[in-house]
């Protein structure tokens, strides 16, 4: 009997060795270990064994069963691994095909710049003021120290609607409106972004409509050195930490002293290139100490209060920042242009 069991084990292991697939394996399991299987068949003869033989044979039988089962299990695992492997193989995709993208739109580059500038100044304690684009001559010119017939009005030919009402030529009228609204309170610390209009023929760098951002600070003891400090901080946050600024005397009727402000050329870093006309500097804004006439018109005593103001063209900043070469791109809204700004 023992020999039969050993033979059975040998046969089973031999057969199992040759098994090709999981079904086959199952068949063999039934054949050898099933209720009507070979092992059961052999064990039926146990009845004829002596009491001494019985446990010995029983042990052998268990060993045989154990060996066959273990072998089947190993086989089964191997088949499962193969199966898994096969499935994974089948499920393989081409990872180089494009993904299903979420269409991302873009904030207009001009507003991207406005938002960035707003954020810088909000971080410096400013609030954002707004005012009408259809404006009174008084706010756009007279209260800004530009009486009728002032030669400086030549600098900006305007779109009038009536004798007294025009499209604002600058965001500066918001200065006056803010001062009026503040009724003499300090500090005044605002920036005002918005559209402005001038009778300019459109070309690559001029547009009859463009955007400005104006800034105004009024308090006791506001100094020109504070204006320098403020603009330096702005330039560094806007264009990078290595920026320097340079002030040049200029003229605006509503500031005295008036300055034009250059920053280090962002293209060449100051070494000189085509963009900065080999000066290393790029003009980005106009500024100055608020003219005493303007303070008076706004209800602030110029002997007590002082202030500074600055203004910049959003288009110009955007052109410099993004390298846009024609201002008209900002208004044609070519999707191929806009899409380029769909990024952080």
């Amino acid at each position: 009997m023992k020999e039969r069991l050993q033979a059975l084990r040998a046969e089973a292991l031999d057969k199992l060795q040759q098994v090709k697939d999981a079904n086959n394996l199952n068949e063999l399991r039934v054949k050898f270990l099933g209720k009507k299987g070979a092992l059961t068949e052999v064990l039926r003869g146990m009845g004829g064994l002596s009491a001494e033989e019985r446990p010995m044979i029983g042990q052998v039988a268990n060993e045989v069963r154990g060996a066959i089962e273990e072998f089947i299990e190993q086989k089964q695992e191997a088949f499962q691994r193969e199966e898994t492997e096969r499935r994974l193989q089948e499920e393989t995709i081409d990872v180089t095909l494009p993904g299903r993208t979420l269409a991302q739109g873009a904030v207009h580059p001009l507003n991207k710049v406005v938002e960035q500038i707003e954020d810088i100044f909000v971080g410096m304690g400013y609030t954002v003021a707004e005012g009408p684009e259809v404006e009174r001559d008084y706010y756009n010119f007279e209260a800004l120290n530009l009486p009728k017939d002032h030669p400086a009005r030549d600098m900006q030919d305007s779109f009038y609607i009536t004798e007294d009402i025009l499209m604002r030529t600058q965001t500066s009228p918001v200065q006056i409106r803010t001062m009026e609204a503040m009724k003499g309170d300090v500090p005044v610390k605002i920036i005002c972004p918005g559209r402005v209009y001038r009778r300019d023929d459109d070309d690559a760098t001029h547009s009859f409509m463009f955007h400005q951002i104006e800034g105004l600070v009024i308090d006791k003891n506001i100094r020109m050195s504070d204006l320098k400090g403020t603009l330096l901080q702005f330039a560094r946050e806007m264009f990078g930490p290595h920026m320097q600024i340079r002030l040049r005397p200029s003229f605006f009727p509503f500031t005295e002293p008036s300055v034009e402000v250059d920053v280090t050329c962002m293209k060449c870093g100051g070494s000189g290139c085509r963009i900065c006309k080999h000066t290393g500097w790029i003009e980005i804004l106009g500024a100055g100490m608020v003219h005493p006439r303007v303070l008076e018109m706004g209800g602030y005593d110029p002997e007590v209060y002082s202030g500074f103001a600055f203004g910049m063209g959003v288009e110009r900043i955007a052109m410099l920042k993004y390298g846009v070469d024609d201002i008209r791109h900002f208004y044609t809204n070519d999707m191929r242009f806009l899409k380029q700004f769909a990024r952080m």
Binding site: P187, V217, D226, K228, G229, L247, V259
Partner: peptide
């Protein structure tokens, strides 16, 4: 103008913010 110093505004700081509409 280059010889004018670069300073920060003196006095209490003010909180900056956007209003609801903005």
């Amino acid at each position: 103008y280059d010889n004018i110093p670069t300073t920060a505004i003196e006095g209490p700081t003010t909180p900056g913010h956007l209003n609801k509409g903005q």
